[in-house]
Design a protein around this nucleic acid. Structure first.
Length: 436
RNA sequence: GCAGGCAUAGCUUAGUUGGUAGAGCGGUCGGCUGUUAACCGGCAGGUCGCAGGUUCGAUCCCUGUUGCCUGCGCCA
């Protein structure tokens, strides 16, 4: 491997593929994304982490040996190229580099990924497939979504906090937790930071957190991960309508940020930025009862008291352009911490993404009545002793409060128009895969 | 967890109503080309997932097993 001389000025592709750089000399370094060579002229498509650029080498402009070396460069070799940038409609993105000199940093072995690949194979060699256009674009979109979210929370006065990942008790139901050996005692990987965020609002009033959440559910679907990134917020003094307002503005801020700053990636993933910009808070809100009627009217059967399945969510959102809230689900099918006003329904809401993508947020106003919480815990067969610390929150300065959890990868799947949630994350953890 | 499907070269696959197999890509050698994972020709590359069974003979039929994929349930 050759050392790169220190002090050398390199450009990045995204900053030079602009009209004002046409005719200018530039030095780039990156990886060979594509390579084609002939007798007199050869091409490589260079990828440098910011964009791709076609580079052209002519035999007449390089020495015989240099040209041959250029023709023998293999995919994914790392390389330094030097030359003049030109506008050229024959190049993939309208610009190309006319190579005057180049230096191979590392000549790659034959890259195992070629034209035809199966999903299973791409998961096996994920550590190399992360270099693909699809995964790099999706990664950029994700970063922008989070940037949009953080900006939004900051503006709203929410403090970012870091709850624990290892926990001693569950949040909702014990069967879906990953158990681990914690110095000889059982502990669990967190599946939601909610209960901890509830403790923290008494210190900070309004908090949010981005944490990994773990679900040991043996789900086999295109929208479940065993490890996913969970964006959760909790706010004191907020009721159900207040938290829904916040969710709508958050989601709007996130998708608008991406639509403005990551246009190319979105387009290439199959999502028009303009369509995202047309989606604006507040989103439509319907009650569970109305949703039941709508779903039934679309020919998909559901009875009052049933939770939504995939088919129900799809029927409800397939023809929508904007997300929609479904509120006030039956209390019996919802978690122990959700508030009830009428004893029958919960002050909760699910935010469903349009076009059939389904649930992206689960949210509720929290129950303050310690008796009802206890009742609910007993209903679920939980051990009250495990929740004493949580019940303390209702003993010392209890206030009305609400919060929600948003699945980043779920939002990603919708925003990037992706068939499978695994392409929203570099290393998807699903039921039967934990490597690479 | 339930239901269905698949497993043949490095990758993507065709095929054999049971007589041990072809192709494309990739590799390699050569030709051609301002190419867009281009095209043309030569060559190399396969104990047909694994273990049993039936059979003169199994990659093909049967049983088991493992891995993977899809759908459902569960959820974000």
């Amino acid at each position: 491997m050759k050392k790169i001389e220190s002090g050398t000025k390199f450009s990045s592709i995204d900053e030079i593929i602009k009209p004002r750089f046409a005719g200018k000399k530039v030095k780039l370094r990156g990886w060979v994304h594509r390579q084609r060579s002939g007798k007199k002229i050869a091409f490589i498509v260079l990828r440098d982490g910011t964009d791709i650029l076609q580079c052209t080498a002519k035999k007449s402009e390089l020495s015989e040996e240099k040209y041959e070396e250029f023709c023998n460069i293999k995919y994914e070799s790392s390389i330094i190229v030097f030359g003049t940038l030109e506008k050229d409609d024959r190049a993939p993105n309208g610009y190309e580099l006319h190579i005057e000199n180049f230096e191979i940093i590392h000549l790659a072995e034959t890259f195992p990924i070629s034209k035809d690949q199966s999903e299973a194979f791409l998961l096996d060699i994920r550590h190399l497939w992360v270099r693909s256009q699809k995964l790099t674009q999706s990664a950029r979109v994700k970063a922008k979504l989070m940037e949009g979210a953080r900006n939004f929370f900051k503006k709203q006065g929410y403090l970012e906090v870091w709850p624990p990942i290892i926990t001693g008790s569950s949040c909702e139901g014990g069967s879906t937790l990953f158990e681990l050996d914690y110095f000889g005692k059982p502990a669990f990987l967190s599946q939601s930071a909610q209960l901890y965020l509830e403790t923290l609002i008494f210190a900070h009033k309004k908090v949010f957190a981005l944490t990994p959440s773990f679900r040991a559910e043996k789900s086999r679907t295109t929208r479940h991960l065993a490890e996913y990134w969970h964006l959760e917020a909790e706010a004191a003094f907020l009721d159900l309508n207040g938290i829904m307002d916040l969710e709508d503005e958050l989601v709007t801020a996130m998708i608008h940020k991406v639509a403005r700053d990551e246009k190319k990636s979105l387009i290439s993933l199959g999502r028009k930025p303009k369509d995202l910009l047309e989606i604006k808070a507040p989103f439509e809100r319907i009650r569970y009862d109305e949703a039941i009627d709508i779903i039934n009217s679309k020919g998909v059967k559901i009875e009052w008291g049933e939770d939504f399945g995939t088919g129900h969510e799809r029927a409800l959102t397939k023809d929508l352009k904007s997300p929609i809230h479904v509120t006030h689900f039956p209390r019996q099918i919802k978690a122990f911490y959700m508030k009830t006003l009428d004893g029958k329904t919960a002050e909760c809401n699910d935010l469903l993404a349009p076009e059939g993508f389904g649930e992206i947020i689960g949210s509720s106003q929290r129950e303050e009545d310690i008796k009802i919480i206890t009742e609910n815990l007993l209903r679920d067969g939980s051990d009250i002793a495990d929740y004493e610390w949580y019940l303390d929150l209702r003993r010392y300065g209890s206030v009305q409060h609400s919060g929600f959890g948003l699945g980043i990868e779920r939002v990603m799947r919708w925003v990037c128009n992706l068939e499978h949630i695994r392409d929203t994350i570099a290393y998807p953890r699903v039921m039967n895969r934990s490597t690479p």
